[in-house]
């Protein structure tokens, strides 16, 4: 089957088996270094890529779904400003995912941030977020946003980072972006 698609900004036209997973195309045909196959479709969450701007597990995407798609792997994502925000948040919180899950967790974090920004959650309003957070801390429960962050990042089965740290990374990163948008406007 002939496939035309865009991977990391380059247009590709290749012939491949129609049911070959995107993960294997990236590893075997394009030799993308950040991709790894650990589970063969058992949802280990280590093969995340952005497909048309949305995070997907590349082991679940067959080749025939790639026709006309725009794929961004971690290799090209790490050249973006969005990545630098996340990397800065890792350093500020003092917690970086291990080498094995770094690429995937970073892309899932980006996907979660986009969702939270789109939904105009309390996270985009720091005063409101701090108020909700104080209340929930007092009651010892998590906010809806925190639950979402933990659930989404739970897709990656690697346990190198604690859920509370991941929540801090996402909130810190959203804060950077909000401040930058305020400065711009």
């Amino acid at each position: 089957m002939n496939i035309d698609c865009n991977i990391d900004g380059k247009n590709y036209s290749f012939s491949t088996n129609s049911d070959k997973p995107l993960l294997q195309i990236l590893i075997e045909d394009l030799e993308v270094e950040s991709m790894m196959s650990l589970c063969k479709g058992a949802y280990c969450g280590n093969c995340v890529v952005l497909m048309d701007g949305q995070a997907v597990l590349s082991c679940l995407v067959p080749a025939f779904k790639l026709q006309g798609a725009v794929i961004q792997t971690f290799e090209s994502f790490k050249k973006t400003r969005a990545y630098r925000d996340i990397d800065r948040a890792y350093k500020e919180i003092g917690c970086t995912p291990c080498r094995q899950c770094y690429a995937s967790k970073t892309l899932i974090i980006e996907s979660v941030i986009q969702t939270l920004e789109r939904s105009q959650s309390t996270l985009s309003n720091p005063m409101e977020f701090n108020r909700v957070r104080r209340e929930s801390d007092m009651e010892g429960i998590r906010t809806e946003e925190e639950k979402l962050i933990i659930r989404e990042l739970g897709l990656n089965s690697c346990t190198c980072t604690q859920s509370s740290e991941l929540v801090k990374i996402v909130t810190t990163c959203i804060d950077y972006r909000r401040k930058r948008n305020v400065r711009r406007s």
């Binding site: 088996n17 129609s18 049911d19 479709g41 949802y43 082991c59 679940l60 025939f64």
Partner: peptide
């Protein structure tokens, strides 16, 4: 969507691949 089929049913590479009717 393929989330179940890719994970459980379709084991690439297979010598006897099944034909697919994609509903997308």
């Amino acid at each position: 969507g393929g989330t179940y089929l890719m994970a459980k049913e379709v084991n690439y590479p297979s010598k006897n691949p099944i034909n697919i009717i994609s509903l997308g």
